[in-house]
């Protein structure tokens, strides 16, 4: 089976994000990047499929130089091949553009199934999987928590999460599957895997190679402004002797009807 996983590198979820002075993007300096957590479920599922049905797992990303680290993480977990499409994406929050690029790249390689995360935790668009499927003319299932593939029949049984229930779906293959938390437990890469990943040569292609112009992922949207959430109110501080401050505190709590 030819299994493809699309991954995205995103700021570490523990990063404290700062808005840049222009107010249209974030300050990139000092940010640590990780593989989008939902993509990790997709990678793990691809490895499980390979272990069950044989075949090959190829991971692919479109992003700047640093994005190659996301590919190495996937290789360390056990993916066989990686493809890096060089593209800056610093200010793009446009999943459609990313999907278009990815669709062009995927036309060049064979695949039986395409996996990705249900959304990237940086822009939270959740539009990439459906858009990719649309560009490729394939069916897609999103928010997936269960997957059984029957390569002979060219079909997959998919479980997806919906409000308060589960949906069981049969889809023909190839299809685009977008992973949700709960699909599996991503593995801790073995030392040998990490070393092999470090040494692997990863082919790079440019947007021009894919017949696109420019160096940035094509965008159909534009960020007008970005704002941090309003800061939390400072609260109140009572100073003085305990007898007095406690009495004031109790009064304040009663006034708010909290006690």
């Amino acid at each position: 089976m030819e299994i493809v996983v699309c991954v995205k590198q995103v700021p570490d979820t523990e990063t404290r994000i700062k808005i840049d002075p222009a107010g249209k993007g974030i300050v990139r300096e000092g940010i640590e990047y990780v593989v989008n957590p939902y993509d990790e479920f997709a990678i793990e599922e691809a490895l499980v499929l390979k272990e069950k049905h044989g075949g090959k797992v190829t991971v692919i990303t479109a992003g700047p130089d640093r994005a190659v680290d996301a590919l190495r993480t996937a290789l360390a977990m056990g993916a066989d091949e990686a493809i890096h499409i060089q593209a800056s994406q610093e200010d793009a929050v446009d999943s459609i553009g990313a999907a278009e690029v990815m669709a062009r790249a995927l036309k060049e390689i064979p695949f039986d199934i395409i996996l990705c995360g249900k959304q990237a935790v940086d822009d939270d668009n959740a539009a990439f999987a459906p858009a990719l499927a649309e560009f490729l003319g394939l069916p897609h299932v999103t928010v997936v928590t269960g997957l059984e593939v029957d390569p002979e029949a060219g079909e997959a049984q998919v479980v997806r999460e919906i409000e308060g229930a589960q949906e069981h779906i049969t889809t023909s293959l190839p299809a685009v599957i977008a992973a949700q938390k709960g699909l599996n437990e991503p593995r801790y890469p073995a030392l040998r895997g990490i070393m092999q990943a470090k040494r692997k040569k990863i082919p790079v292609s440019t947007l021009a190679d894919l017949g696109l112009e420019g160096e940035t992922l094509p965008a159909r949207t534009e960020v007008l402004s970005m704002m941090p959430p309003p800061p939390r109110e400072g609260g109140e501080k009572y100073e003085g002797e305990p007898e007095e401050t406690v009495a004031r505190l109790i009064k304040a709590l009663q006034a708010e009807k909290l006690v």
Binding site: Y188, P189, A190, L191, R192
Partner: peptide, 8 residues
């Protein structure tokens, strides 16, 4: 090391 197949 603490990793699977973690000896060098």
């Amino acid at each position: 090391t603490d990793r699977p197949q973690g000896e060098l």
